[in-house]
């Protein structure tokens, strides 16, 4: 159970714009502690966004993405008040899902 995301969605001219800010360490697995031991890899591997049960975005994430990733995407359709759900999964099997209502 990761930390909550911030999701903002708004619809304009039939296109919904979604902004997602995820909270995640995104550790590459290449960084070392001061004593030389490797910091184990820990990063988001998959992101999925759904609108009313329909998958509107699927992405594969990796080590090259920064800590606390920010994602902006648009999809056709969507109406004020409808829900957008975003889920991420990381390489430790942890997952987090948050949702937001589409604003005007």
């Amino acid at each position: 159970m990761g930390n909550p995301m911030k999701i903002r969605a708004s619809v304009k001219d039939g296109v919904t714009e979604v902004k997602v800010l995820m909270q995640h360490e995104m550790e590459t697995g290449l960084r070392k502690e001061a004593d030389g031991t490797l910091v184990p890899a820990w990063f988001i591997t998959e992101v999925k966004a759904q609108h009313q049960g329909r998958t509107v975005l699927e992405a594969q994430y990796g080590q090259s993405i920064s800590k606390n990733p920010y994602l902006l995407f648009r999809f056709k359709g969507g109406a004020v008040g409808e829900k957008v759900t975003v889920t991420w999964m990381d390489n430790k099997g942890d997952t987090r899902t948050d949702e937001a209502a589409i604003a005007a």
Partner: peptide, 10 residues
Amino acid sequence: MISDGNPAEF
């Protein structure tokens, strides 16, 4: 580009 996705919000 990322000003409305500022992780300082966390």
